[in-house]
């Protein structure tokens, strides 16, 4: 075995243990966070708790913006960047408007391009996700 492979294996072992909790959708997550502090983005953050257990069941983040083609492009690029990490993805195009849906474990991201420079983004994070395998 080549020395290069041994080094690679060592690196993988060390970093693999460190990266276990890394979010798969880090680009999208960072962009959503950035949008929450932008004045021209309408943000709704809904935290839904179970009435019996009072435990957080679901968190929904909804972003709506218009007249911001740069942000539309930024979202499309972020989806593209995190695509490889997604468990499931759907990409559609209707009349030149992009629709994207990516699922990363218990979190799903939806993107709908509305008009030129307008889009709607939803993030749903569930406490326990039911996978469809």
């Amino acid at each position: 075995m080549k020395t290069r492979h041994l080094i690679a294996a060592a690196i993988l072992l060390i970093t693999g243990s460190l990266s276990a909790n890394l979010p798969a959708q880090e680009t999208l997550k960072a962009l959503v966070k950035k949008c929450e502090s932008m004045d021209n983005v309408n943000t709704s953050v809904v935290r839904n708790r179970n009435k019996q257990t009072k435990k957080l069941e679901k968190e929904i983040i909804s972003l709506n913006f218009s007249n911001n083609q740069a942000l539309v492009n930024e979202f499309i690029a972020a989806f593209e960047k995190d695509k490889l990490m997604a468990d499931k993805e759907i990409e559609g195009k209707n009349n030149g408007k992009k629709t994207l849906f990516y699922r990363f474990g218990d979190t799903s991201y939806s993107f709908s391009q509305l008009n030129e420079g307008s889009a709607s983004v939803s993030v749903i994070q569930k406490d326990e996700y039911e996978y469809e395998e």
Binding site: S44, V46, I60, I90, R103, S110, S122, I124, E132
Partner: peptide, 27 residues
């Protein structure tokens, strides 16, 4: 903000349901 909260939940769940149906048909 309760009306906005409920509208957000409805919208997000509809989007997800559509996506789930699409995923099922694709798979």
């Amino acid at each position: 903000i309760r009306p906005e909260i409920e509208a957000t939940i409805q919208k997000a769940l509809q989007q997800e349901e559509r996506a789930n149906r699409l995923l099922l048909s694709l798979s």
